[in-house]
């Protein structure tokens, strides 16, 4: 009888144990280890020569210009990608919301970049953006626009990477917004029509609030994702020219062999920044988000 009671009490823990073990092993442990590493001057060749340095790595980070450069690049990149992607996918989604054959074809087409590897996409765009032989400059010349150096100038490299990321992300987020739009009951729009509401009014008084949970979700997911951008930079510019596209993760990657303790500390800083941003978002916006 008693045995049964103990089992009753234990059962929930036993049932979640496998999942918890996974989380411990693959989430908690790496994060803990990252923080642990960030407090050391770590020697990869000889573990015993690693030295505990306390906050040294962090003070070093905050005193170095190249970190701020990377942080600035990442912020610009994130702002650009988030704002452009959200605006464009909202626009396209509103346009695609009317059900028709043509629209479903467009929807499928616009989603395709999402299933292609970002590395392949980066390589294709690398070629498109080639200043002398690339298609983009060729088209620019045809329509009489001045050609651009794209990835090869420190002025335009970051914006070029933003364009590629936006192009890749748009389809996926458009799809999410279209789904959100289609879940709005048409009778609400009919009621608004009877209430003599203008198109613009309907959009910002009804449509936007109705899809605000999805927009909020996209905002957070994209901010986090963009802060961690790496592959596009790695393939297209390698952080150049002149560090114009060095983002935080790429910066971290740069120290992977020379100073892993410093890398880890930057990783911790990145984690803190993302956490802080998410917190601010929730504080500022969660009241404006309408949940059913």
């Amino acid at each position: 009888m008693d045995k049964k009671r103990i089992w009753e009490g234990l059962r929930p823990y036993v049932l979640i144990a496998p999942a918890m073990a996974g989380i411990m092993l693959f989430v908690m442990y790496p994060v803990g280890y990252l923080i642990y590493l960030s407090l050391f001057k770590y020697n990869l060749m000889n573990k015993d020569k690693s030295k505990f340095v306390g906050w040294d790595n962090f003070t070093q980070i905050l005193g170095r210009g190249d970190f701020y450069r990377a942080l600035w690049n990442t912020t610009i990149y994130t702002a650009g990608v988030v704002v452009l992607t959200m605006l464009l996918s909202l626009l396209i989604a509103v346009w695609l919301n009317k059900k028709s054959r043509f629209n479903s074809v467009v929807q499928a087409g616009i989603f395709t970049p999402h299933v292609v590897s970002i590395v392949s996409i980066s390589l294709v765009w690398l070629w498109l953006m080639e200043p002398n032989q690339g298609l983009l400059n060729y088209v620019f010349k045809l329509v009489g626009l001045p050609s651009s150096a794209w990835l090869q100038s420190s002025k335009t490299a970051l914006i070029s990477i933003i364009i590629v990321s936006v192009w890749q992300a748009i389809g996926y987020y458009t799809l999410i917004i279209v789904a959100a739009l289609q879940s709005i009951s048409p009778s609400i729009y009919e009621a608004a029509a009877l209430d003599n509401a203008s198109k613009f009014k309907v959009f910002y008084k009804i449509t936007l609030p109705m899809i605000s949970p999805q927009l909020f979700f996209i905002l957070i997911i994209m901010t986090i994702g963009s802060f961690k951008v790496f592959d596009t930079v790695q393939v297209m510019t390698g952080g150049g020219p002149n560090n114009a596209t060095t983002t935080l993760v790429y910066y971290i990657y740069g120290f992977r062999t020379t100073n892993i303790g410093y890398s880890a500390a930057t990783g911790v800083v990145l984690m803190a920044i993302i956490g802080l941003l998410t917190f601010i978002y929730f504080r500022l916006l969660s009241k404006k988000v309408h949940y059913q």
């Binding site: 009951s185 009778s187 609400i188 009919e190 009621a191 608004a192 029509a193 009877l194 209430d195 003599n196 509401a197 008084k205 009804i206 609030p209 109705m210 309408h290 059913q292």
Partner: peptide, 19 residues
């Protein structure tokens, strides 16, 4: 346009603006 016909409608599902 519906909004200018001088009619008001009570919908079967009410169609209240939830936001």
């Amino acid at each position: 346009a519906p909004g200018k016909r001088g009619v008001a409608m009570v919908f079967q599902n009410y169609a209240i603006y939830p936001t």
